[in-house]
Amino acid sequence: MLDALLLNTGVHVRFVVRNRLLLAFSLLMAGIFALEMIPMVLMDTSANRFSELQAVTSQLATFAMVFTASLGLFTVSSHLRNRNLKMVFTKPCPPGVWLASVYLSAALVAFVLYVVIALAAAGLSLAWHVPLQPGLAYAALDGFFRAIVWLSFVTTLTVAFHPVVAVMIALFVNDATFYGLKYMIAGAVAANGAKTWLTIATLACDVFYAILPMSQPFDDRTREVYASWRVAGADWLLLMGIGGYAVLVLVLSYAMSLLLLRRKALI
């Protein structure tokens, strides 16, 4: 099983490296990143370099998160669309192993990306004479865990739906949507009183908010670290909690995706 897992992981990494859509997507993201960096470069002074460094790493981390989620999307949808999974499952390689290799390969690529981001930020930090802070490593790890949550969410959606539908759902039916909706409904209740449909809507929002994975787990409690890049002992514990949450979402996503994959027509 381990051999099959590693074999499939290697093949998926090859897929990622050779996929032209992913390359185009990466170039697009790089272009957006470069455009957003222009004003920063123009207004560069030695006084604001810490905030510039924070902005650069934040931009790169966002890019890495979107890229990681797209790895699950492209890998699953491409193999389902090309119907080549029948070549895998008519050999002693169960769907569970193949699916695990999708997550593993994406997680590996994401980990490498976040390590590169952390190293790049450390390099810039040294070049700009900004003191190296442990918050840099903290932000990279936190970003990696968030990327795993997004990867899990998008991968399960891709196994269930057409990739375009999956992207639409990921963009518009996520925890942030229902968080915002909850506030809107609360406002409506305050203005009009608790009407039946508003009570039902509140309940529905609560249910969806509880079911959907948190795209930015414990965001309110990590804000301090992101602002100063100083990390206290309790923050590391919190990071472990975020990691645990990401693993939990990953496991649930894997179980659901496997269930769906087994029911898919692979012919």
Binding site: V88, F89, T90, K91, P92, C93, P94, P95, G96, V97, W98, R262, L266
Partner: peptide, 8 residues
């Protein structure tokens, strides 16, 4: 069964 040992 998909991917079972039978396929060896």
């Amino acid at each position: 069964e998909l991917g079972s040992d039978l396929f060896r």
